[in-house]
């Protein structure tokens, strides 16, 4: 069986957030529930300041701490689905322990204060047990894998677009969106990335494009010390998260 992996080349990424909106629309997440967020960091000051950024999907960890802590097995790693970590919305009790345990902050409990008001959930009230029901819904739905619009009280996260990836012809190794034969099966965030900073494919096949890139360009995994062993690799300068510094409040002169 394949092991799906993603590679993000930070030397090419422009920080545009198309991956964020593509994911949001493909997966009908609420505003702010960005399964794929782009994080910006500032360091230094004029005239030699730096700004770095980092797109961040779920890492689909090989050793997913979210899975280990979940008391109901609602969160599970499906080796037969390329090692994707799913949330079974039929089982999740909304304890949010997985959110505590994920070192990458990629899990969402959408039953929270709306980021943008008026609240979308009021404007498109949930029907059929959905938390909200916008008119532009993706027709694909599978609650046992956390795909579709979620019911209230459960946790959601990036599914590596399993509803797309799983439709690819048997044996697909490189999900290159420029290849018309596989384009529809490429994860939304990868498919749309204009500078082609994202790649998706099979980490179990040594000659896959993702493995080639990881090898040639010294791919790293973020926060590897946590031992979670992400299936998402980063290339290029800036593939690290600066240590947290509280904002300069401006009261010292």
């Amino acid at each position: 069986m394949a092991k799906w992996g993603m590679v993000i080349d930070l030397d090419k990424c422009t920080g545009c957030q198309a991956c964020t909106t593509a994911c949001a629309m493909e997966n009908n997440t609420l505003p702010g529930e960005s399964w794929q967020d782009v994080l910006f960091y500032h360091e230094g000051e004029y005239p030699s300041g730096q700004m770095k950024w980092l797109p961040r999907p779920c890492m689909q960890c090989e050793k997913p701490s979210c899975v280990y802590v979940c008391p109901t097995r609602a969160t599970y790693k499906d080796e037969s689905a390329g090692g994707i970590v799913f949330v079974d919305w039929n089982k999740c009790i909304g304890c949010k322990y997985c959110m505590i345990a994920c070192p990458y902050g990629v899990r969402f409990y959408s039953d929270e204060k709306p980021l943008i008001e008026p609240d979308m959930r009021d404007i498109y009230p949930g029907q059929n047990k959905q938390l909200w029901s916008p008119p532009y819904q993706n027709p694909k739905e599978d609650w046992s894998r956390g795909i579709g619009i979620q019911p209230p009280g459960v946790v959601s996260k990036c599914t590596f677009c399993y509803h797309k990836v799983s439709q690819a012809p048997e044996g697909t190794v490189d999900f290159d969106e420029d290849n018309p034969a596989v384009k529809e099966y490429v994860p939304a965030c990868v498919r749309t990335c204009a500078p082609k900073a994202r790649y998706f494919g099979d980490l179990d096949v040594p000659e896959s494009q993702v493995n080639q890139l990881i090898g040639d360009k010294h791919g790293v995994r973020l926060k590897d010390h946590t031992g979670n062993k992400p299936q998402v690799y980063y290339l290029g300068a800036g593939a690290a998260v600066p240590a947290f510094t509280p904002a300069d409040k401006g009261d010292k002169s």
Binding site: K91, C92, I93, G94, C95, V155
Partner: peptide
Amino acid sequence: LGNVFRMLWAIPLN
């Protein structure tokens, strides 16, 4: 909890 009653079967069954 988001789904209290589900806990009653989901934890023991899994």
